[in-house]
Simulated assay, not measured.
Amino acid sequence: MSWITEYVRPKIRGLLRREVPDNLWTNCESCNQMVLTKELHKNLNVCPHCGHHMKALVADRLSWTFDNGDFTRIELPSAPVDPLGFRDQKKYTDRLKDARSKSHVDESLIVAHGTIGGHSAVVAVMAFEFMAGTMGAAFGERFVAAARLAVLQKSPLVIFTASGGARMQEGAISLMQMPRTTIAVQMLKEAGLPYIVVLTNPTTGGVTASFAMLGDVQIGEPNALIGFAGPRVIQDTVREKLPEGFQRSEYLLDHGMLDMVVNRKEMRETLGRVIGLLTRASADVTAPPPAATPEPAASASA
């Protein structure tokens, strides 16, 4: 055998058989175009071909939102792990363990604080990667903690919603978080602090029916699905064809349910501008009126 057979040929075969990583490319859900995952992440998970806004992980969302990607996550209170001892195909406790292992977050709401556009802010992000961002007792505890931190720091609260609704494994306890989160929003309003909601795809169920629609400013990401029940359920119920784009951000904007639809690339700048306007207006309202200027005394010759 020659050196070509023994050395060169195996090297060439090794190069040709090199495996391509599974996550090298990402398929756009909207236009089905293949996008390099690295390039997609640089583009904030927005498809460069059609502009479709793909789902975002909590860590990415926080990094994109705060100035220079700098933020501090807060330690959040715990809640009963399995209040009902629920079991379907597997135990609820096992589902929680699996969700934590796969998502690398411990619950469906993560809270951090930092600055946005130079303004201090508390930001809560719903983790769709954790059991579809469902709302349970632990979520309620965390939402209240976020509101209390905002009041303590005298900062606005910004929440990014992404959820399938209430968590069925906690039954009525999950539904009780709807009034609980509503009361937490009221705490912010009584303190005169802005509450800003950014609705992302999808935001549905009890989340939409409670705190997600109570913002002082309601912002939607492009083409996000926002509603209580899904469009197919509604169409089967009313037995009528739904309008084009029903329950999408642009449709809700046209019908007065949202204040604006903002591209993800412009979200930080928009939030900074809105927070600046709202906090300035709040300061103007609470500031004492200027002291009256005394009138000059009448001259003696008068």
Rank of each mutant, 00 (worst) to 15 (best):
L15E: 04
A56F: 00
I219P: 00
H49A: 03
A172I: 10
H119T: 01
K38V: 12
P48N: 05
L193K: 05
Y92N: 13
R167N: 11
V144I: 13
D67T: 08
V122R: 00
G165K: 05
L57N: 09
K55F: 09
R239S: 07
L40S: 08
A146H: 05
A212P: 03
R61P: 00
G133T: 02
S155D: 02
D88S: 15
K55M: 13
R148W: 00
A79G: 06
S210G: 09
A191T: 10
R13W: 03
G164A: 14
V158P: 00
Q33K: 11
P231I: 05
S163V: 03
D82F: 04
M187T: 10
P80H: 09
L24H: 09
V122N: 00
D98N: 10
F66C: 10
L188K: 08
V185R: 01
P288A: 11
L36N: 09
V261D: 13
T270N: 05
E6C: 06
A99V: 04
G164M: 04
R61V: 03
A292G: 03
C50K: 02
V233C: 03
N201I: 03
V8I: 15
G192C: 08
D82C: 06
M126R: 11
P156L: 06
Q169Y: 09
V122W: 00
G215D: 11
T5M: 04
G230A: 10
F160V: 01
S78Y: 08
T286L: 14
S108F: 04
S282G: 15
V8T: 14
G114E: 02
V261Y: 14
I74C: 06
G171P: 00
T72Y: 02
E244A: 12
S282H: 10
G220V: 03
N223V: 01
F71C: 04
T293P: 00
G230W: 12
G140L: 01
A146Y: 04
T26V: 08
S63E: 15
I183A: 10
V217I: 15
V238T: 08
T5G: 01
M1K: 01
L258G: 05
E141T: 03
G220Y: 07
N23R: 10
T37W: 04
G205E: 07
P77L: 03
R13F: 07
I4Y: 15
D82A: 05
M187D: 15
K265C: 02
T270A: 15
S163R: 06
P296G: 09
G51M: 07
S163K: 06
E244T: 12
R87M: 13
N32M: 10
D259E: 14
R268Y: 03
A302Y: 06
L40G: 05
E244S: 14
R280M: 02
T65N: 03
H119L: 01
M267P: 06
T37K: 09
D98Q: 15
V238K: 02
I196Y: 04
A124Y: 01
K42E: 15
E39Q: 11
K265Y: 05
V125P: 05
G85C: 08
A79E: 12
H119I: 00
G118N: 12
L253F: 13
A137K: 09
G140A: 15
K102M: 08
R100C: 13
Y195V: 03
G276S: 07
E29S: 14
E221G: 05
A79Q: 05
L188N: 09
F130P: 00
G171A: 01
R142A: 08
